[in-house]
Structures are given as C-alpha cells and as structure tokens.
C-alpha cells in the first residue's frame, strides 16, 4: 500500500474538552497512534465509597482478548494526490473523550481501546418503596 500525505489547512479550530485518553493532534506522525482507557463506574443510591474497592483484574471485560482483523485483503492500493490539498474552514468540536482521536494531518495506523464496566447499586429501602407503588390498590 502506498499512501501520499496531503497538505491540510484549517481556518479556526475550537475544541471545548479533551478527556479520558482523548487525543487532538495537529501535524503528521510517523508511527502509530494508540490510546487506551479503562474505567469502572460505580453508581450508588448513597454515595459512600471505600478506597481500592474495585480492581480491574476482577472483571473479565478488562482482559478479554481483542478481536483482530483478518489478514490483509488480496488487493493492492495505490493512492496518489499530486499535491492536492485538503482545505477546511472553521472546526468546532465540543468533546473528544474515551480513547478518541481528532487529527489534522497524516499518520500511520490509528488505534484506540476503551473498556468500561458500569455497576449500579441501590439500597433495599428504595426498591421496596417502588415495589409497593406498583401494587394494585396502593
């Protein structure tokens, strides 16, 4: 595969927030770009938390093997641009998050990985009240 880089020009770029392994990159990169984000989100009716309460290794999602794409397809791609540029006016982005990438320019392979486990914990009291409301004649 041959890939020729093109000149990219942008007028005005506004990015409000970059978080959780998000990447904003201007310019070319020779190698690969990778970002990884792992998260255990615990939502509780009463926000009381113990430190070091949850461990990544306790949840299979965090060490599940990634499915890899098969081998290269039986095709040869030749891409040429003959110096044709990419021109963009104003770019406005509110958020880049959880292993996402915003790039202006040319690069090698882009890789991203995001793994999130969400746990919700409610107490008995709320559950019982909700159950009671669903009873006929309540």
């Amino acid at each position: 595969m041959t890939l020729t880089c093109r000149l990219v020009t942008a007028g005005f770029v506004y990015v409000n927030t970059v978080s959780s392994s998000g990447i904003v990159q201007f310019g070319d990169a020779a190698g690969a770009t990778t970002s990884t984000n792992r998260l255990i989100a615990v939502q509780r009716a009463v926000p009381i938390y113990d430190k070091d309460e949850t461990r990544f290794s306790a949840y299979p999602l965090f060490y599940k093997l990634k499915l890899q794409p098969g081998g290269e397809p039986p095709a040869r791609l030749n891409s040429s641009s003959a110096g044709s540029p990419i021109r963009v006016g104003n770019v406005c982005v509110l958020g880049i998050s959880t292993s996402s990438v915003l790039r202006f320019g040319c690069s090698g392979p882009i890789g991203g990985e995001s793994r999130i486990v969400n746990i919700r914990q409610f107490n008995d009291l709320q559950f019982n009240n909700r159950d009671a409301e669903q009873q006929p004649g309540y």
């Binding site: 020729t4 794409p69 982005v93 292993s99 990438v101 790039r103 320019g105 040319c106 890789g111």
Partner: peptide, 19 residues
C-alpha cells in the same frame, strides 16, 4: 467524538478502534 472514535482530516494507513 467518544468511545474509541476518530475524526480525521487528512490521511492514514488504517484505523483499529475497540470499545
């Protein structure tokens, strides 16, 4: 742009994004 997504203005060889 969230959950292993990409916005590219330019060129790249490949994307491999997992969420």
């Amino acid at each position: 742009v969230a959950s292993s997504s990409a916005l590219l203005i330019g060129d790249t060889e490949s994307f491999t994004l997992y969420s």
